[in-house]
Design a protein around this nucleic acid. Structure first.
Lengths: 201, 201
DNA sequence: AGCTTTTTTGAGCGATCACTCAAGCGTGAG
DNA sequence: CTCACGCTTGAGTGATCGCTCAAAAAAGCT
């Protein structure tokens, strides 16, 4: 029971750290902010997570893991690969949800301001982004196998385009006054993915 | 002569500040960094530019001005509006050039990590981004007037999509190992703009 | 209960932050 | 040459940064 509740606490703390970093970014978040958000004192934070950068990396990895899980669940539930991708864009992208700290991908958002100062973070982020893109490519390949995409389509290229476009929409949505239009763009993008099917014949 | 050389010095200092902030972002750039880059001592910096945030805003505005100028020049030199847009994407986007501090738009890049901590900066960035998007929309409208786009096309929507996609490509290019692919995406995007013409008939 | 081990605590570390201002310096008028 | 004035200088301001560690509290064991 004690071990369970302890790992549960740690889990909750990590989720809070993820939300805080997601919202404020690495450099703009101080340890005082973290102490307040996690309800922990500095010594405990360092005992549990090492240091600020390690905590940030753990938060990133947790985020990526959750997104990957959610994506897989949506893909599995969809009638086919292409429709799964469209649904992912419609329902899982941060811009389409109101319960997240920010409407842009945590990875993309913080990849921009940590690159030069924290090379270790940059590498971690890059690896996690690659994983997302590889999942997209894999799904496009499956759509190809299902006959929904022409054989001469390039799944890697499609995945790259999708990834970049999703990122752009997320950045766009960071301006609160443009968020609604970003939502519309996400919906359009989902429809464009569905429209790829018609090109198969 | 003294006035001229003085404003020239100021200009050069501002350009250096622009490059430094572009590369490192607001929070990751310290005044020591700025002193070194501008070859100025703290007192002179504060006498000339007020404070760090004001200097940053001036650098942003200067950047936006230069981009707008370059864009206008390209549009004016092109045979028509649609081709002008395509050329802008091909030749002026940071990802297609090697002489810039970063392959992503300065505005988009720093809009992400300054929003919550520096509300005044956020507002300035948002206004400058709006100007870019309005210029895209205006160009699409001109293309429409030239008969290159169907009358029922939505220039505002096209401008929004173009803006978001360019941003996404820029973010993508921030990973050095992906820069070449970002370049290809920019080239593809330019061709897609050109391809819009065929839909007119 | 007493004793050991583990965890939590928060005052405070040196470093660095953005920023200031009295003193030094160069320049031009008289 | 002298002096006054404006710009440059950089040591130094208080605040805050990420982080440490000895002491206190809590938990575990017999």
């Amino acid at each position: 029971m004690s071990i369970r509740s302890k790992s549960h606490d740690r889990d909750k703390a990590l989720a809070r750290a993820r939300d805080l970093f997601w919202k404020q970014g690495f450099h703009a978040t101080s340890l005082k902010d973290i102490e307040a958000a996690l309800h922990m004192h500095p010594g405990s934070i360092y005992a549990a997570f090492g240091n600020k950068e390690t905590l940030f990396r753990m938060a990133l990895e947790r985020y990526a893991e959750e997104v990957a899980e959610s994506r897989q669940k949506i893909l599995d539930a969809a009638p086919d690969a292409l429709e799964g991708l469209a649904r992912f864009v419609e329902t899982a992208h941060p811009v389409t949800r109101d319960d997240l700290p920010q409407p842009a991908c945590f990875l993309a958002k913080t990849g921009m301001d940590t690159g030069l100062t924290q090379p270790a973070l940059r590498a971690a982020i890059s690896a996690l982004l690659d994983r997302t893109e590889a999942a997209f490519a894999q799904t496009y390949r499956q759509a190809q196998a299902e006959g929904a995409l022409p054989a001469n389509a390039d799944p890697d290229n499609l995945a790259r385009r999708l990834h970049a476009t999703l990122t752009g929409i997320g950045v766009y949505a960071l301006r609160p006054e443009r968020r609604e239009q970003a939502r519309l763009m996400a919906r359009d993008l989902a429809d464009e993915i569905r429209a790829l099917r018609h090109l198969a014949s």
